[in-house]
Design a protein around this nucleic acid. Structure first.
Lengths: 108, 108
DNA sequence: GCAATAGTTCGAATATAGTCGAACTATTGA
DNA sequence: TCAATAGTTCGACTATATTCGAACTATTGC
């Protein structure tokens, strides 16, 4: 039951966080995690091949956006929202609000 | 004195904005514009070749982060901060605060 | 132990981004 | 008109990201 490495809050890099959030699939994952935490990768696959999903989770983890805990056979993902809020106050919530308002705009 | 095209606020794309802000040089440009607006490209070059600077300003413009007005021989750049605030409230200010706090952290 | 499930890793292919010099356009000021 | 300045555009190159299938590891439940 080996666990993942996650960067410390002090080591968060703003451009890495912004880059992690700048991909549509990864942003959708973050939105879904914001609604229900933690979640394994499965329900977040959205039809992609597993290797692609795995890659995107790695990007999110390395940026400090997501924490993954291995629980039995499942890799449970959650947002590092309090840590992000501590390091970059207001950033994640602004992005989540923006993402939601954008979706509502597109919906009409 | 031909002017540039800029996307309408309604056409702003969140992932494009995040991507525009996720590059260290572009983020530094945004920070400098936040301190003094408008500014031509020259003082923001930071030692880069002009073609590279031009490319980054194009990315910022296309995302809606920056507006460029041609004034004589100068291309004056300013942040579209009120428009960004209107479309994605709190986003730009959170990014700017984060960028500044990160710099202060690194400085010690 | 064995099949099924969850997810990673590898490797190769493709796509997107960034970099830079050189040639170009537009404007200014002499 | 001419030289100088500001910035763009082009094209080639490099670097980084993304995608995907296939092989792999770990865990569960039977």
């Amino acid at each position: 039951m080996k666990q993942y490495e996650h960067p410390l809050v002090e080591a968060f890099d703003l451009t890495a966080v912004l880059h992690a959030l700048s991909d549509p699939y990864r942003l959708s994952v973050v939105q879904k995690l914001a609604e229900a935490q933690p979640q394994p990768c499965g329900p977040l696959q959205a039809g992609r091949p597993k290797s692609s999903v795995s890659h995107h989770f790695m990007v999110l983890r390395r940026a400090g956006v997501v924490r993954t805990e291995v629980v039995g056979a499942l890799h449970m993902n959650s947002l590092r929202d309090t840590e992000l809020e501590q390091r970059f106050p207001g950033l994640l919530s602004a992005v989540l609000k923006a993402a939601q308002s954008e979706q509502e705009c597109r919906a009409g």
